[in-house]
């Protein structure tokens, strides 16, 4: 069963029929840049599209390998998770942990207004 990993209301990009080496479009670059919250100028879009197309060309070579019936490998040792006892080990260290904050007040990190 295919799992919807985008979990989106409407996918931003239409799912591909099949993966070919057509490369990546400028529109896709802009859309991914937005997902990754990277501002990108028109000039950069052009250059980036070119580079990403080349990179995706290299990556798409793997489509030639038949991987049917192979389990994905996430950890090279196939190791399993160790569990931690439910004991409080951390004490209040707010002053130190917030020293790098670009803006803070009353023990809070400040960011431009959050609109729900």
């Amino acid at each position: 069963m295919a799992i919807d990993r985008s979990n989106s209301l409407e996918p931003e990009m239409p799912a591909p029929e099949k993966i070919d080496s057509q490369g990546i479009s400028a529109k896709q670059v802009q859309s991914v840049a937005h997902l990754a919250r990277l501002s990108i100028s028109e000039d950069e879009v052009r250059q980036t599209t070119e580079k990403l197309t080349a990179i995706m060309g290299l990556i798409d070579e793997m489509q030639a390998v038949n991987t049917d019936g192979i389990e994905p490998l996430a950890n090279p040792l196939d190791a399993v998770q160790r569990l931690r006892a439910d004991e409080v080990t951390e004490t209040n260290n707010r002053e130190q942990l917030m020293t790098n904050a670009p803006a803070k007040e009353d023990g809070l990190f400040l960011v431009p207004k959050v609109i729900d």
């Binding site: 803006a103 007040e105 009353d106 809070l108 990190f109 400040l110 960011v111 431009p112 207004k113 959050v114």
Partner: peptide, 12 residues
Amino acid sequence: FSTGSHGMSGID
């Protein structure tokens, strides 16, 4: 908050 010119939110 006294900081910031455009209105800020505090994160806890």
